[in-house]
Design a protein around this nucleic acid. Structure first.
Lengths: 190, 190
DNA sequence: GCGGCTAGTAAACGAGCGTATACTCGCCGA
DNA sequence: TCGGCGAGTATACGCTCGTTTACTAGCCGC
Protein backbone atom coordinates (compact mmCIF):
# COMPACT_ATOMS: atom_id res chain seq x y z
CA UNK A 1 0.00 0.00 0.00
CA UNK A 2 1.43 3.34 -1.03
CA UNK A 3 1.59 6.28 1.32
CA UNK A 4 0.16 9.66 0.38
CA UNK A 5 -3.52 8.85 0.81
CA UNK A 6 -4.33 12.54 1.00
CA UNK A 7 -4.29 14.75 -2.04
CA UNK A 8 -1.55 16.84 -0.51
CA UNK A 9 1.29 16.14 -2.86
CA UNK A 10 4.81 16.96 -1.81
CA UNK A 11 6.76 19.32 -4.00
CA UNK A 12 3.63 21.23 -4.84
CA UNK A 13 4.54 24.81 -5.62
CA UNK A 14 1.03 26.19 -5.47
CA UNK A 15 0.22 24.46 -2.21
CA UNK A 16 3.43 25.57 -0.54
CA UNK A 17 2.87 29.11 -1.71
CA UNK A 18 -0.60 28.98 -0.25
CA UNK A 19 0.65 27.66 3.08
CA UNK A 20 3.15 30.51 3.25
CA UNK A 21 0.45 33.00 2.41
CA UNK A 22 -1.84 31.72 5.12
CA UNK A 23 0.89 31.54 7.72
CA UNK A 24 1.82 35.10 6.88
CA UNK A 25 -1.78 36.22 7.07
CA UNK A 26 -2.13 34.76 10.52
CA UNK A 27 1.18 36.02 11.88
CA UNK A 28 1.05 39.53 10.40
CA UNK A 29 -2.43 39.88 11.82
CA UNK A 30 -1.42 38.66 15.22
CA UNK A 31 1.84 40.52 15.71
CA UNK A 32 2.17 43.17 13.02
CA UNK A 33 4.57 43.46 10.16
CA UNK A 34 7.81 44.29 11.87
CA UNK A 35 7.42 41.83 14.71
CA UNK A 36 7.05 38.91 12.34
CA UNK A 37 10.19 37.45 10.74
CA UNK A 38 10.33 35.49 7.54
CA UNK A 39 11.74 32.66 9.57
CA UNK A 40 8.61 32.59 11.69
CA UNK A 41 6.44 32.52 8.60
CA UNK A 42 8.42 29.79 6.93
CA UNK A 43 8.44 27.75 10.10
CA UNK A 44 4.69 28.12 10.62
CA UNK A 45 4.11 27.09 7.03
CA UNK A 46 6.50 24.17 7.32
CA UNK A 47 8.47 25.56 4.43
CA UNK A 48 11.98 26.75 3.81
CA UNK A 49 13.01 30.33 4.45
CA UNK A 50 14.30 30.85 0.96
CA UNK A 51 10.89 30.15 -0.52
CA UNK A 52 9.53 33.42 0.80
CA UNK A 53 12.03 35.22 -1.36
CA UNK A 54 11.44 32.93 -4.27
CA UNK A 55 7.66 33.09 -4.32
CA UNK A 56 7.00 36.62 -3.15
CA UNK A 57 10.19 38.50 -3.90
CA UNK A 58 10.54 39.86 -0.40
CA UNK A 59 8.88 40.09 2.98
CA UNK A 60 7.16 43.28 1.90
CA UNK A 61 5.94 41.59 -1.25
CA UNK A 62 4.42 38.81 0.80
CA UNK A 63 2.75 41.34 3.05
CA UNK A 64 1.34 43.14 0.05
CA UNK A 65 -0.10 39.94 -1.29
CA UNK A 66 -1.68 39.17 2.07
CA UNK A 67 -3.35 42.56 2.10
CA UNK A 68 -4.52 42.28 -1.49
CA UNK A 69 -6.02 38.86 -0.90
CA UNK A 70 -8.23 39.95 1.95
CA UNK A 71 -12.00 39.78 1.57
CA UNK A 72 -12.01 43.05 3.51
CA UNK A 73 -14.79 44.56 5.53
CA UNK A 74 -16.96 45.05 2.50
CA UNK A 75 -20.06 43.56 4.10
CA UNK A 76 -20.20 46.45 6.54
CA UNK A 77 -19.66 49.16 4.00
CA UNK A 78 -21.93 47.74 1.36
CA UNK A 79 -25.62 48.02 2.06
CA UNK A 80 -28.14 50.75 2.53
CA UNK A 81 -27.00 54.17 3.59
CA UNK A 82 -29.40 54.54 6.53
CA UNK A 83 -28.21 51.36 8.19
CA UNK A 84 -24.53 52.18 7.83
CA UNK A 85 -24.06 53.74 11.27
CA UNK A 86 -25.58 50.74 12.97
CA UNK A 87 -23.49 48.30 10.99
CA UNK A 88 -20.35 50.29 11.69
CA UNK A 89 -21.23 50.48 15.38
CA UNK A 90 -21.83 46.76 15.64
CA UNK A 91 -18.64 45.95 13.86
CA UNK A 92 -16.72 48.45 15.98
CA UNK A 93 -18.31 47.06 19.13
CA UNK A 94 -17.04 43.66 18.13
CA UNK A 95 -13.61 45.16 17.93
CA UNK A 96 -13.82 46.54 21.46
CA UNK A 97 -13.62 43.08 22.89
CA UNK A 98 -11.90 40.98 20.24
CA UNK A 99 -8.99 41.33 17.93
CA UNK A 100 -10.13 41.72 14.36
CA UNK A 101 -9.96 38.73 12.09
CA UNK A 102 -8.89 40.83 9.18
CA UNK A 103 -5.15 41.22 8.71
CA UNK A 104 -5.83 44.58 7.16
CA UNK A 105 -7.35 45.96 10.31
CA UNK A 106 -4.77 44.31 12.47
CA UNK A 107 -2.02 45.70 10.34
CA UNK A 108 -3.62 49.11 10.51
CA UNK A 109 -3.28 48.92 14.24
CA UNK A 110 0.12 47.37 14.53
CA UNK A 111 2.27 48.12 11.55
CA UNK A 112 3.63 51.56 11.94
CA UNK A 113 7.24 51.85 11.00
CA UNK A 114 8.33 50.87 7.53
CA UNK A 115 7.31 53.52 4.98
CA UNK A 116 6.78 50.98 2.23
CA UNK A 117 4.40 49.02 4.43
CA UNK A 118 2.69 52.20 5.52
CA UNK A 119 1.97 52.99 1.92
CA UNK A 120 0.47 49.56 1.33
CA UNK A 121 -1.70 49.85 4.40
CA UNK A 122 -2.78 53.37 3.55
CA UNK A 123 -3.89 52.43 0.07
CA UNK A 124 -5.82 49.53 1.42
CA UNK A 125 -7.50 51.63 4.10
CA UNK A 126 -8.57 54.17 1.53
CA UNK A 127 -9.86 51.50 -0.81
CA UNK A 128 -11.85 49.41 1.63
CA UNK A 129 -13.10 51.93 4.14
CA UNK A 130 -12.81 55.62 3.42
CA UNK A 131 -13.70 55.62 -0.27
CA UNK A 132 -16.66 53.22 -0.04
CA UNK A 133 -18.12 55.21 2.84
CA UNK A 134 -17.53 58.44 0.97
CA UNK A 135 -19.27 57.06 -2.10
CA UNK A 136 -22.20 55.85 -0.04
CA UNK A 137 -22.60 59.22 1.65
CA UNK A 138 -22.25 61.61 -1.22
CA UNK A 139 -22.51 65.33 -0.66
CA UNK A 140 -19.93 68.08 -0.46
CA UNK A 141 -18.05 67.20 2.69
CA UNK A 142 -18.49 63.45 2.31
CA UNK A 143 -14.77 62.95 2.46
CA UNK A 144 -14.36 64.70 5.79
CA UNK A 145 -17.27 62.75 7.24
CA UNK A 146 -15.97 59.42 5.97
CA UNK A 147 -12.62 60.29 7.43
CA UNK A 148 -14.08 61.03 10.81
CA UNK A 149 -16.07 57.82 10.90
CA UNK A 150 -12.95 55.92 9.92
CA UNK A 151 -11.10 57.65 12.72
CA UNK A 152 -13.63 56.48 15.28
CA UNK A 153 -13.44 53.01 13.85
CA UNK A 154 -9.68 52.85 14.02
CA UNK A 155 -9.47 54.54 17.39
CA UNK A 156 -11.60 51.87 18.99
CA UNK A 157 -9.13 49.31 17.77
CA UNK A 158 -6.23 51.34 19.12
CA UNK A 159 -7.76 51.56 22.55
CA UNK A 160 -8.47 47.86 22.70
CA UNK A 161 -4.97 47.09 21.61
CA UNK A 162 -3.36 49.51 24.03
CA UNK A 163 -5.38 49.23 27.22
CA UNK A 164 -7.01 45.87 26.70
CA UNK A 165 -10.33 44.51 25.45
CA UNK A 166 -13.58 45.41 27.15
CA UNK A 167 -17.02 44.10 26.33
CA UNK A 168 -19.38 46.91 25.35
CA UNK A 169 -22.84 47.12 26.88
CA UNK A 170 -25.92 47.49 24.66
CA UNK A 171 -25.97 51.11 25.73
CA UNK A 172 -22.43 51.47 24.44
CA UNK A 173 -23.47 50.13 21.06
CA UNK A 174 -26.37 52.57 20.95
CA UNK A 175 -24.09 55.42 21.84
CA UNK A 176 -21.64 54.31 19.22
CA UNK A 177 -24.40 54.18 16.63
CA UNK A 178 -25.31 57.74 17.49
CA UNK A 179 -21.67 58.73 17.21
CA UNK A 180 -21.44 57.26 13.73
CA UNK A 181 -24.68 58.95 12.71
CA UNK A 182 -23.18 62.21 13.83
CA UNK A 183 -19.86 61.60 12.11
CA UNK A 184 -21.56 60.66 8.89
CA UNK A 185 -24.15 63.43 9.09
CA UNK A 186 -27.04 60.98 8.83
CA UNK A 187 -30.38 61.18 10.58
CA UNK A 188 -31.09 58.67 13.36
CA UNK A 189 -33.31 55.81 12.31
CA UNK A 190 -36.78 55.89 13.82
CA UNK B 1 41.32 85.48 26.14
CA UNK B 2 40.18 82.03 27.24
CA UNK B 3 37.59 80.05 25.33
CA UNK B 4 34.50 78.70 27.03
CA UNK B 5 32.57 81.91 27.35
CA UNK B 6 29.33 80.04 27.74
CA UNK B 7 28.44 78.30 30.94
CA UNK B 8 28.31 74.96 29.12
CA UNK B 9 31.03 73.07 30.88
CA UNK B 10 32.50 69.98 29.29
CA UNK B 11 32.34 66.77 31.27
CA UNK B 12 29.01 67.76 32.77
CA UNK B 13 27.08 64.63 33.59
CA UNK B 14 23.77 66.35 34.23
CA UNK B 15 23.96 68.46 31.09
CA UNK B 16 24.89 65.52 28.87
CA UNK B 17 22.10 63.46 30.34
CA UNK B 18 19.70 66.28 29.60
CA UNK B 19 20.88 66.58 26.02
CA UNK B 20 20.33 62.87 25.51
CA UNK B 21 16.89 63.13 27.03
CA UNK B 22 15.88 65.97 24.77
CA UNK B 23 17.28 64.36 21.66
CA UNK B 24 15.39 61.20 22.53
CA UNK B 25 12.20 63.14 23.15
CA UNK B 26 12.43 64.76 19.76
CA UNK B 27 13.37 61.63 17.84
CA UNK B 28 10.95 59.26 19.55
CA UNK B 29 8.21 61.77 18.90
CA UNK B 30 9.13 62.16 15.28
CA UNK B 31 9.72 58.58 14.28
CA UNK B 32 8.46 56.29 17.03
CA UNK B 33 10.32 54.00 19.35
CA UNK B 34 11.44 51.23 17.05
CA UNK B 35 12.49 53.47 14.18
CA UNK B 36 14.88 55.40 16.37
CA UNK B 37 18.26 53.90 17.18
CA UNK B 38 20.42 54.74 20.15
CA UNK B 39 23.06 55.80 17.67
CA UNK B 40 20.70 58.41 16.27
CA UNK B 41 19.94 59.69 19.74
CA UNK B 42 23.56 59.86 20.80
CA UNK B 43 24.51 61.55 17.56
CA UNK B 44 21.74 64.15 17.86
CA UNK B 45 22.80 64.85 21.42
CA UNK B 46 26.47 65.06 20.47
CA UNK B 47 27.22 62.35 22.99
CA UNK B 48 28.71 58.90 22.95
CA UNK B 49 26.56 55.83 22.32
CA UNK B 50 27.65 54.13 25.50
CA UNK B 51 26.25 56.95 27.61
CA UNK B 52 22.69 55.93 26.80
CA UNK B 53 23.34 52.64 28.52
CA UNK B 54 25.20 54.28 31.35
CA UNK B 55 22.69 56.97 32.18
CA UNK B 56 19.41 55.25 31.38
CA UNK B 57 20.19 51.56 31.57
CA UNK B 58 18.77 50.80 28.18
CA UNK B 59 16.92 52.26 25.24
CA UNK B 60 13.64 51.29 26.86
CA UNK B 61 14.69 52.97 30.08
CA UNK B 62 15.41 56.16 28.19
CA UNK B 63 12.04 55.97 26.50
CA UNK B 64 10.35 55.48 29.85
CA UNK B 65 12.05 58.56 31.24
CA UNK B 66 11.00 60.58 28.19
CA UNK B 67 7.40 59.58 28.74
CA UNK B 68 7.52 60.26 32.46
CA UNK B 69 8.96 63.72 31.92
CA UNK B 70 6.23 64.87 29.59
CA UNK B 71 3.98 67.76 30.63
CA UNK B 72 1.19 65.73 28.96
CA UNK B 73 -2.09 66.94 27.63
CA UNK B 74 -3.26 67.97 31.05
CA UNK B 75 -4.47 71.38 29.96
CA UNK B 76 -7.18 69.80 27.88
CA UNK B 77 -8.36 67.35 30.46
CA UNK B 78 -8.25 69.76 33.38
CA UNK B 79 -10.97 72.37 33.46
CA UNK B 80 -14.71 72.47 33.73
CA UNK B 81 -16.72 69.45 32.76
CA UNK B 82 -19.10 71.20 30.40
CA UNK B 83 -16.31 72.59 28.26
CA UNK B 84 -14.47 69.30 27.95
CA UNK B 85 -15.99 68.20 24.62
CA UNK B 86 -15.09 71.48 23.01
CA UNK B 87 -11.53 71.40 24.32
CA UNK B 88 -11.13 67.82 23.20
CA UNK B 89 -12.55 68.66 19.79
CA UNK B 90 -10.24 71.60 19.32
CA UNK B 91 -7.23 69.63 20.36
CA UNK B 92 -8.27 66.74 18.15
CA UNK B 93 -8.88 69.12 15.25
CA UNK B 94 -5.37 70.37 15.70
CA UNK B 95 -4.20 66.80 15.36
CA UNK B 96 -6.05 66.37 12.09
CA UNK B 97 -3.64 68.66 10.34
CA UNK B 98 -0.47 68.58 12.40
CA UNK B 99 1.63 65.97 14.09
CA UNK B 100 1.32 66.23 17.84
CA UNK B 101 4.11 67.88 19.78
CA UNK B 102 3.78 65.45 22.60
CA UNK B 103 6.02 62.38 22.42
CA UNK B 104 3.35 60.50 24.34
CA UNK B 105 0.77 61.00 21.66
CA UNK B 106 3.23 60.38 18.90
CA UNK B 107 4.40 57.24 20.54
CA UNK B 108 0.82 56.15 20.96
CA UNK B 109 0.48 56.35 17.24
CA UNK B 110 3.77 54.96 16.16
CA UNK B 111 5.17 52.61 18.74
CA UNK B 112 3.39 49.35 18.38
CA UNK B 113 5.70 46.42 18.60
CA UNK B 114 7.79 45.94 21.70
CA UNK B 115 5.64 44.65 24.59
CA UNK B 116 7.69 46.49 27.19
CA UNK B 117 7.19 49.75 25.36
CA UNK B 118 3.53 49.01 24.87
CA UNK B 119 3.15 48.64 28.61
CA UNK B 120 4.85 51.98 29.21
CA UNK B 121 2.65 53.68 26.67
CA UNK B 122 -0.49 52.04 27.99
CA UNK B 123 0.16 53.16 31.55
CA UNK B 124 0.80 56.67 30.36
CA UNK B 125 -2.34 56.74 28.24
CA UNK B 126 -4.42 55.60 31.16
CA UNK B 127 -2.84 58.13 33.48
CA UNK B 128 -3.03 61.21 31.30
CA UNK B 129 -6.18 60.68 29.29
CA UNK B 130 -8.60 57.94 30.28
CA UNK B 131 -8.44 58.28 34.04
CA UNK B 132 -8.63 62.08 34.19
CA UNK B 133 -11.59 62.09 31.84
CA UNK B 134 -13.24 59.34 33.83
CA UNK B 135 -12.75 61.27 37.05
CA UNK B 136 -14.14 64.42 35.52
CA UNK B 137 -17.22 62.62 34.24
CA UNK B 138 -18.23 60.53 37.21
CA UNK B 139 -21.25 58.27 37.03
CA UNK B 140 -21.67 54.56 36.55
CA UNK B 141 -20.37 54.03 33.03
CA UNK B 142 -17.82 56.81 33.16
CA UNK B 143 -15.08 54.41 32.24
CA UNK B 144 -16.76 53.23 29.05
CA UNK B 145 -17.48 56.81 28.04
CA UNK B 146 -13.94 57.95 28.74
CA UNK B 147 -12.69 55.02 26.72
CA UNK B 148 -14.86 55.92 23.79
CA UNK B 149 -13.78 59.54 23.79
CA UNK B 150 -10.16 58.42 23.98
CA UNK B 151 -10.79 56.13 21.03
CA UNK B 152 -12.05 59.01 18.92
CA UNK B 153 -9.09 61.06 20.00
CA UNK B 154 -6.57 58.41 19.07
CA UNK B 155 -8.35 57.43 15.88
CA UNK B 156 -8.07 60.91 14.51
CA UNK B 157 -4.34 60.70 14.99
CA UNK B 158 -4.23 57.32 13.26
CA UNK B 159 -6.06 58.61 10.24
CA UNK B 160 -3.82 61.61 9.92
CA UNK B 161 -0.75 59.45 10.23
CA UNK B 162 -1.98 56.86 7.75
CA UNK B 163 -3.71 58.83 5.02
CA UNK B 164 -2.17 62.22 5.56
CA UNK B 165 -3.08 65.49 7.30
CA UNK B 166 -6.17 67.43 6.34
CA UNK B 167 -7.25 70.78 7.75
CA UNK B 168 -10.67 70.56 9.39
CA UNK B 169 -13.34 73.10 8.57
CA UNK B 170 -15.17 74.94 11.37
CA UNK B 171 -18.10 72.64 10.67
CA UNK B 172 -15.83 69.67 11.26
CA UNK B 173 -14.85 71.05 14.64
CA UNK B 174 -18.50 71.54 15.53
CA UNK B 175 -19.33 68.03 14.46
CA UNK B 176 -16.40 66.73 16.44
CA UNK B 177 -17.57 68.62 19.50
CA UNK B 178 -20.95 66.99 19.17
CA UNK B 179 -19.28 63.61 18.81
CA UNK B 180 -17.36 64.11 22.04
CA UNK B 181 -20.50 65.29 23.82
CA UNK B 182 -22.17 62.10 22.71
CA UNK B 183 -19.24 59.92 23.68
CA UNK B 184 -19.01 61.51 27.08
CA UNK B 185 -22.76 61.60 27.65
CA UNK B 186 -22.77 65.35 28.24
CA UNK B 187 -25.42 67.85 27.19
CA UNK B 188 -24.56 70.29 24.42
CA UNK B 189 -23.66 73.74 25.63
CA UNK B 190 -26.23 76.40 24.81
C1' DG C 1 51.97 68.31 42.72
C1' DC C 2 49.59 64.16 42.56
C1' DG C 3 46.45 60.17 43.05
C1' DG C 4 41.94 58.74 42.37
C1' DC C 5 37.25 59.32 41.10
C1' DT C 6 34.54 59.80 37.05
C1' DA C 7 32.83 61.72 32.53
C1' DG C 8 33.53 60.46 28.17
C1' DT C 9 35.44 57.49 24.32
C1' DA C 10 36.42 53.82 20.84
C1' DA C 11 35.69 49.55 19.53
C1' DA C 12 33.84 45.32 19.47
C1' DC C 13 30.44 41.65 20.67
C1' DG C 14 26.72 38.63 19.83
C1' DA C 15 22.37 38.21 18.13
C1' DG C 16 18.87 38.71 14.76
C1' DC C 17 17.33 40.33 10.58
C1' DG C 18 16.19 40.01 5.25
C1' DT C 19 18.19 38.21 1.42
C1' DA C 20 21.07 35.47 -1.84
C1' DT C 21 23.62 31.45 -3.37
C1' DA C 22 24.82 26.90 -4.36
C1' DC C 23 23.15 22.68 -3.88
C1' DT C 24 20.15 18.07 -3.60
C1' DC C 25 16.81 15.20 -5.15
C1' DG C 26 12.54 13.44 -7.10
C1' DC C 27 9.53 13.40 -10.79
C1' DC C 28 8.35 13.29 -15.82
C1' DG C 29 8.68 13.26 -20.70
C1' DA C 30 11.27 11.43 -24.46
C1' DT D 1 16.49 4.39 -19.12
C1' DC D 2 18.05 8.72 -18.62
C1' DG D 3 18.61 13.78 -18.73
C1' DG D 4 17.03 17.91 -17.07
C1' DC D 5 13.78 20.89 -14.95
C1' DG D 6 12.29 22.73 -10.87
C1' DA D 7 10.66 22.35 -5.90
C1' DG D 8 12.80 22.42 -1.84
C1' DT D 9 17.05 22.80 1.19
C1' DA D 10 21.15 24.23 3.90
C1' DT D 11 23.91 27.72 4.66
C1' DA D 12 26.13 31.87 4.55
C1' DC D 13 26.41 36.92 3.54
C1' DG D 14 26.13 41.57 4.88
C1' DC D 15 24.07 44.55 7.74
C1' DT D 16 22.17 46.89 11.81
C1' DC D 17 20.81 46.69 16.20
C1' DG D 18 21.34 47.27 21.57
C1' DT D 19 24.66 46.54 24.68
C1' DT D 20 29.26 46.01 26.96
C1' DT D 21 34.04 46.37 27.83
C1' DA D 22 38.47 48.32 28.23
C1' DC D 23 40.44 52.48 27.96
C1' DT D 24 41.61 57.85 28.11
C1' DA D 25 41.80 62.09 30.23
C1' DG D 26 40.37 66.00 33.16
C1' DC D 27 39.05 67.90 37.61
C1' DC D 28 39.33 68.17 42.84
C1' DG D 29 40.85 67.40 47.49
C1' DC D 30 44.82 66.60 49.93
Amino acid sequence: MEAQLTDARPRDRAATRQRLLEAARMLFGEYGYEQVTVRMIASAAGANIALVGRYFGSKAGLFGEVLAGEPTVRAVVEGDRAGLPRRLAEYAAERMSHDPESPILRSLERSAGDPEIQALVRDRLQAVLIEPIEALLGGPDAHARARMATAVFLGIGSVRRLVGPETPSPADVDRLTAVFELCLGLEPLP
